[in-house]
């Protein structure tokens, strides 16, 4: 999908981080750990304080004018040529793909189009642009991955998270039944169709529980909030974590004295 733009990126000196609203409020560790991973690779990370939300909730609800108002606020924050990294396949896809529909015919379409070529999902960037080499320092652990539907089907980056986890020597990646099926989050869907969403996440945690990983990681905090909340509600010991946090936690060398 973004292969054409990948070729032209090379290894940048500087990137922007688009932290996403869910990470900002609920999972700031995922944002900070993303920054740490990037900085360790020698990349300067710029985090514009004016950023809020990509606009997807309103966009998916059909309120496109409101979505555009919010999206426009983000577009102005990332001038220049530096890549914009999102630790979320869903938000990255919104900015990379759906902004093009949202801004078609608008006076700032060209600016949006230019931005869309610079959007990367975090794991995609780590693997395909940085070709990151990870040294696993952690204890043996069984990890399952839940790739969000937008990361999988819109960004096409499911393989990147798997590759990263597989590169951790002490981690055993475990699968689970119907792994590619949606967890039932769907943003406002979880509110508007709460009963269907509840049925879906219940089935999802049944299958995760059955394969008994120590931890479930993912690249999208919406899914993690959904799955993690359902696991916690039933008293499961399986913790959920953003993949950036897993990667950082297991590869961060303790300072030598």
């Amino acid at each position: 999908m973004s292969h054409a733009s990948l070729a032209t990126v090379g290894r940048p000196r500087r990137v922007y981080l688009f932290g996403t609203c869910l990470i900002d409020l609920f999972f700031p560790d995922a944002g900070v750990d993303s920054v740490r991973l990037l900085e360790r690779e020698g990349i300067e990370v710029v985090y514009p304080q004016g950023q809020t939300c990509c606009g997807q909730p309103a966009y998916n609800s059909g309120y496109h004018e409101d979505a555009r108002t919010v999206a426009r606020q983000q577009v102005s924050l990332f001038p220049g040529d530096d890549p914009v990294i999102g630790p979320s396949g869903s938000c990255a896809s919104m900015m990379k793909h759906h902004y093009l529909d949202l801004f078609r015919g608008e006076p700032d379409f060209a600016e949006v189009q230019a931005l869309s070529t610079r959007i990367f999902e975090l794991t995609e960037f780590l693997v395909r642009v940085l070709n990151i080499d990870l040294k696993d320092l952690g204890a043996p652990q069984k990890v399952a991955i839940h790739t969000s539907c937008h990361a999988r089907r819109e960004m096409g980056v499911a393989g990147d998270a798997e590759q990263l986890v597989d590169s951790l020597g002490n981690v055993e990646r475990v699968g689970f039944e119907r792994q590619t099926e949606c967890c039932g989050f769907g943003g406002t869907f979880a509110v508007k169709h709460a009963p269907i969403s509840a049925a879906m996440v219940t089935d999802k945690v049944d299958t995760i529980d059955a394969s008994a990983p120590d931890r479930l990681v993912g690249g999208d905090c919406g899914c993690l909030m959904n799955i993690g909340g359902a696991l916690e509600k039933r008293g499961s010991s399986i913790r959920v974590q953003h993949i950036a946090s897993l990667l950082w936690e297991r590869t961060d060398e303790p300072p030598s004295n």
């Binding site: 932290g19 900002d24 700031p28 560790d29 900070v32 985090y47």
Partner: peptide, 27 residues
């Protein structure tokens, strides 16, 4: 409705905006 099958989401003590501002690597 969310909490029928899930624990409610927990708001972090400090937002990413705050933590990044504190780190200083911010514009």
């Amino acid at each position: 409705a969310w909490s029928s099958v899930r624990t409610p989401p927990r708001v972090a003590g400090r937002t990413l905006h705050q933590r990044m501002a504190a780190r200083g690597s911010t514009k």
